[in-house]
Design a protein around this nucleic acid. Structure first.
Lengths: 74, 74
DNA sequence: ACTAAATGTAAACTTTTTTTTACATGATGC
DNA sequence: GCATCATGTAAAAAAAAGTTTACATTTAGT
């Protein structure tokens, strides 16, 4: 879709919560490290399924990890 | 990712909540009707961004429209 | 019966997400 | 100094998501 209106707290959560490395998170959610890098860097936003998996990895509801920045209809 | 572990209540919500047609919902969230059809039929799960938009269209948090069916780690 | 609106199906196509591979950098420990 | 670990970058390729077009079916209204 548009230009990445979805942000996330993955990096913070890795450190603050669980002190997880990119590789550990990647393994936990079943993707490659490059995917985690891309998400942290905001290159694109994940599939809904991956978003759920990541949220679960942090034991958080999805919307506490990913957030939508509203543009349309101000 | 895997084989569609994500379900949704789009169809119910269209009827029960807002009595919206597929076309109206499609317009509201900025995709084609075919995308809505595919999602309702469970052909695939949407991008995270689209999921946010759809949830917003129903004035609901994302996890009340989409849900993750756990498989791994029983 | 005819029409229009809502839905279903499908195939070819484009765009976005994810993988794979490979190399570079900074920090840490020994 | 060397090895290791965590991270960054990048590019080609595969896989999944989303578009477009077109036609079929069902349902409701007149």
């Amino acid at each position: 879709m548009g230009k990445n209106l979805v942000g996330n707290h993955i990096r913070k959560l890795r450190f603050n919560h669980d002190e997880m490395t990119q590789q550990q998170l990647a393994d936990k959610v079943g993707v490659t490290r490059q995917t985690i890098v891309a998400l942290e860097k905001g290159k694109y936003s994940p599939s809904l399924e991956l978003a759920f998996r990541i949220a679960r990895a942090f034991h958080l509801p999805l919307e506490e990890v990913f957030f939508y920045q509203d543009n349309t209809k101000p």
